[in-house]
Amino acid sequence: MTISKIIVVGDLSVGKTCLINRFCKDTFDKNYKATIGVDFEMERFEVLGVPFSLQLWDTAGQERFKCIASTYYRGAQAIVIVFDVNDVASLEHTRQWLADALKENDPSNVILFLVGSKKDLSTPAQYSLMEKDALKVAQEMQAEYWAVSSLTGENVRDFFFRVAALTFESSVLAELERSSTRRIGDTVRISSNESDLYLSTPRKKPKCCQ
């Protein structure tokens, strides 16, 4: 079975825990406690009949916990950087969060997401203003940008399915690479065959995730 490690980082109280809870438990609970250190949740999927799990690492947002949370950054397949769409400062800090997370990971091998949370709290006018800046930051980071609301659930499932699809794809790719280098003798034949097989997978994914 394949497991992908996803780390979720971002400022204090931007809604990291609520985002994960909405997806994993489909609840929005005001009665939750501030995350101390780290927490994690597992979510199981089946992609193309293959069991696949997302291991979601929820981290504490307070600056002084970085030293603890960062020890869990290593080996992530995807980094989700969360900011509050109603708080410009939290968007600005995403660059720092990314830099910290990339210290522990290989930048070429990790998929980035920039997520604006609490969309329900902002008016369309305010949001469109924020979106401009967010898109700019996302482009700089080469991250995919998503705007969600954990309260209403808007975009939350779609976002995580996208995370699952992309990480699954990269796991399959990595697996292929490994197996092809193992069987040195018939590298050419196998890799050409299996890359065909792979090409068809991403398009099918959105359906099979559900």
Binding site: S13, N31, A34
Partner: peptide, 13 residues
């Protein structure tokens, strides 16, 4: 500021 953000998520139950 950090205190304010955490007051309602301390012992909410």
């Amino acid at each position: 500021e950090e205190i304010e953000r955490d007051l309602h998520r301390s012992l909410p139950e």
